[in-house]
């Protein structure tokens, strides 16, 4: 019983921070609370949910969020593995390089989002400066919808690849070196070793990375809020940004809660799918 007593303060705070909000949203999503109701709560049944299902912007944002998350995380995984392999080899200065490569991850997202905004600037940013030097036309990275979402992907990959690389590096360090030597003695090439030994043994680490990164990327907020503000024409808007705008700009709290709960349900479905896929691959393996 003393064990429960020791856990009680932490568990209470966890309930207050994680469980209470979801219950609150469930209640709020059945209310209208906006400037039209004088910010008072008025029960409206499932009206908010009907609106959500018919809300093109919500589904548009859901698609954009998914696209952003899948593309970023895929790139991060590939780049992260390559960096981890590079940092896993023995060479002088490896420790310093590990610290330096980790820097982008440690910085506040808002700080570097501001930095990237300057780098993507048209025409004064360094990329466009380079294009001008080469006599080419400048590119409006943040003003063109088809480019702006790629800019958010680049900034996100830059920021979070170090995290992925570090976790995978931890995994690489768990693989005994003998395995590679035995594999080489059997005539395997390093490239085959990567696919036959490294990747299969890294699987639990890859799974954890996917779990953390997909969840974070699907909830992307800071980066988009500062880098593009969701623009141009909400082409980079994520669900979290949309929910934020509903609450803080349109002052429509009932609908904002519905958006967030809807996003939560989508995430839950995604997590369930991921777990099922994992079990499926485990059974096959």
């Amino acid at each position: 019983m003393s064990g429960l007593l020791l856990m009680a303060p932490a568990l209470l705070l966890l309930l207050a921070v994680f469980v209470w909000p979801l219950l609150d949203y469930a209640w709020l999503s059945l209310q209208a609370q906006s400037v039209f109701t004088g910010l008072e709560q008025v029960p409206v049944g499932t009206l908010n949910w009907q609106r959500l299902l018919a809300d093109g912007r919500f589904w548009q944002d859901a698609w954009q969020t998914l696209r952003f998350a899948v593309v970023s995380v895929a790139l991060e995984l590939v780049a992260g593995l390559a960096i981890a392999l590079l940092l896993h080899q023995r060479w002088r200065g490896r420790g310093v390089a590990r610290s330096l490569a980790l820097l982008p991850w440690a910085l506040p997202t808002t700080v570097m989002a501001l930095g990237w905004r300057w780098i993507f600037n048209d025409p004064y940013g360094p990329i466009n400066g380079l294009l001008q030097l080469l006599g080419l036309a400048t590119v409006p990275f943040l003003a063109a919808p088809e480019l702006a979402w790629l800019a958010t992907v680049v900034a996100d990959v830059w920021k979070t690849t170090p995290f992925v690389a570090l976790l995978l590096l931890a995994g690489l360090q768990m693989i005994p070196h003998d395995l590679y030597e035995a594999f080489a003695l059997e005539g395997g090439t390093p490239w085959q070793g990567l696919w036959r030994i490294t990747v299969p043994l890294l699987r639990p680490y890859i799974f954890i990375v996917l779990l953390f990164r997909l969840a974070q990327a699907l909830g992307v907020f800071d980066l988009i809020a500062v880098l593009t503000g969701g623009g141009p024409a909400s082409s980079t808007e994520s669900l979290a940004v949309y929910a934020y705008l509903n609450a803080m700009r349109f002052l429509d709290f009932g609908y904002s809660a519905t958006v967030m709960l809807g996003m939560f349900l989508l995430l839950l479905a995604g997590a369930a799918a991921l777990l099922l896929w994992r079990r499926h691959t485990e059974v096959r393996a």
């Binding site: 994680f18 779990l211 974070q216 909830g219 929910a243 934020y244």
Partner: peptide, 12 residues
């Protein structure tokens, strides 16, 4: 909870 995108919680 550790992987939960906490931004969802801000309004409550």
């Amino acid at each position: 909870a550790a992987v939960f995108p906490y931004v969802l919680l801000f309004l409550a």
